[in-house]
């Protein structure tokens, strides 16, 4: 589903990702771990299409298509989803208007009729349950006045609404207490299907107690230095990132 080959990415002349490679197949959950500054968030942003980064070389194939050729909104409509580490507050844009627009743009992309108001509201009520959102979203602006936990829940709620094929979750666990972490993780697990894939980016092993990955990769200085199964995450937790740093030297 996702194939990244020899990807080199820089920002303002500083190289962040160096000959980065990964392959993610349908039905898989991958975890990418790494110390601060290793390039985790850059990877997520580049897959989603953030234009502040420069792709110097390499390719990103998504279901065989060249992702780097598509603008970010087209990637999203094609099924790529980025769960933000820092979800953006957009005062004045209501959650309902935002989600309805997003869903209908996606439906239009696939030649489907837009959802009626009633159909949309029904869908929203259903998906709110996935991450246990009680609040009425009707009168709330996107992420405005949301607590850290609410913002992260809101990311997973949007994921539930948009039903992506490939979800990249960037530090979804940061800033969450254990209860919120469980809710978010349960949400992600509930959305798992045989034909979609999830890439979880995290600093800590903690999240992986709840979202169990098929593969774990360690990112260090812009490239994957170690790959393994979920046991690798535990080993990493035990030995710390110093272990990797020393190994790489």
């Amino acid at each position: 589903m996702l194939k990244i080959k020899d990807l080199n990415v820089s920002i303002n002349g500083k190289q962040i990702l160096k000959n980065f490679n990964i392959e993610v197949n349908k039905g898989e959950v991958h975890a990418i771990m790494g110390p601060n500054g290793s390039g985790k968030s850059t990877l997520a942003a580049v897959i989603a299409g953030r234009d502040i980064f420069t792709v110097d070389s390499g390719e990103i194939l998504y279901n065989g298509k060249d992702l780097l050729d598509m603008p970010p909104d087209l990637r999203a409509r094609e099924g790529v989803f980025l769960g933000f580490q820092y979800p953006v507050e957009i005062p004045g844009v209501s959650m309902v208007n935002f989600m309805r627009t997003a869903i209908n743009e996606k439906r239009k992309h696939f030649g489907l009729e837009p959802l009626t108001g009633a159909e949309f509201l029904k869908l929203m009520e259903e998906k709110k349950k996935v991450v246990d959102i009680q609040a009425k979203l009707t009168n709330r602006s996107v992420n405005e006045g949301f607590s850290g936990g609410e913002k992260k829940k809101n990311e997973i709620f949007q994921m539930a609404m948009l039903e992506p094929k490939l979800a990249i979750l960037d530090e979804t666990d940061s800033g969450l207490d254990i209860d919120a972490l469980k809710v978010v993780a349960n949400g992600v697990n509930a959305l798992k299907k045989p034909d979609n894939a999830t890439v979880v980016i995290t600093h800590y092993q903690r999240l992986l107690d709840y979202i169990v990955p098929d593969f774990v990769h360690v990112l260090y200085e812009g490239r994957i230095v170690k790959s393994g199964t979920k046991e690798l995450a535990l080993e990493l937790e035990e030995k710390g990132y110093e272990w990797i740093k020393n190994e790489v030297k």
Binding site: A48, G49, R50, D51, P71, P72, D73, A76, R77, F81, L82, F84, P87, V88, I90, F98, T101, A102, E105, K106, H109, V142, Q158, L162
Partner: peptide, 15 residues
């Protein structure tokens, strides 16, 4: 706000 623009794009909203 370019951050808000990107956020909306990332949910499939066109320019």
């Amino acid at each position: 706000d370019p951050n808000a623009m990107f956020y909306l794009h990332s949910r499939g909203l066109c320019e």
